[in-house]
Design a protein around this nucleic acid. Structure first.
Lengths: 150, 150
DNA sequence: CCGAAACCGATATGCTTCATAACGATTTCA
DNA sequence: TGAAATCGTTATGAAGCATATCGGTTTCGG
């Protein structure tokens, strides 16, 4: 018998991080493909949704929420603004900051994109029961929290 | 009440992919920190383990297993070879190919690194029962498979 | 009230990761 | 025997991400 039929990455399969990397690679490519018709990528979609749900958000706060550095947000928001999906408005009470808001066109597109992402999620989690999917999301949250405590 | 206490990313939290990205970011930084004392990174560690478990492996096959492009493997293996952890041997039966093998020093380091990664895994999955952890890994596999069927 | 410090968005820059095209050497196969 | 495929490699460029720094603005301590 030996180890002839043993998968070459069997040792790595025991680690949840390895499974995460592989699963996420699939998710990412499928999601980006699903968002392409809307002119969105994973990250621009995320930003659009967060701004829609928290109108008037500041860029620094958005950077916190999406866990990215502020400089990298600039080009991303330029892209969304150029596409007519969001606006940057100088705040009266703090003229350093910009308030972010989604335009009417942005809200429409966001809703359509969300439907596409829902379909994507269903596709990727096919074969899992709703309970298993919920447990997955909960487990990922635990890991995220454990990491943040360092 | 309104949505005052609603997390700004609540909508995104419903998607498993979002949780994966966030959890994996934590895993990656913690893991790379854990591997640093060994002079390894996530990817060099993975390669080392796979080669150890499949002696004589060819580079093209390793690229398949780790899902990376062959050109990116070259520098990575140079690094492991320079560190004296692996060897590249020209095959007699096919002089185009190189057989990859882990050296004695490589095996020792690999074992020590594996222990560190085990500790890392325990740290990251703290709060999950063994069953929950197993279910997580299984669910990630399902998603990876669903993605690969496209 | 004033000056130092902190904060906001933006720019410039470099590093790491990752994908593609093409090459010489070798093997396979028609 | 010659064409096509394969193996490892090189060169190159795109994309993601982090750091340092800037001008403009606000905050706050003396």
């Amino acid at each position: 018998m030996a180890q002839a039929d043993r998968a070459p990455d069997a040792t790595l399969r025991r680690f949840s991080g390895y499974g995460m990397k592989r699963a996420f690679n699939m998710v990412q490519s499928d999601l980006n493909a699903a968002l392409k018709p809307f002119g969105l990528r994973m990250i621009t979609f995320s930003a659009l949704v967060v701004i829609r749900d928290a109108p008037g958000l500041r860029q620094a706060r958005l950077a916190e929420v999406l866990q990215m550095e502020k400089p990298n947000l600039v080009a991303l928001l330029d892209e969304l603004e150029r596409a007519g999906l969001i606006t940057r408005t100088r705040l009266a009470e703090d003229r350093r900051a910009h308030a972010l808001d989604v335009t009417g066109a942005g809200i429409t597109l966001c809703a359509r994109a969300l439907a596409a992402v829902d379909a994507h999620e269903s596709r990727m989690t096919e074969g899992l029961t709703p309970e298993e999917r919920a447990a997955l999301i909960r487990a990922l949250r635990v890991i995220e929290t454990n990491g943040g405590e360092t």
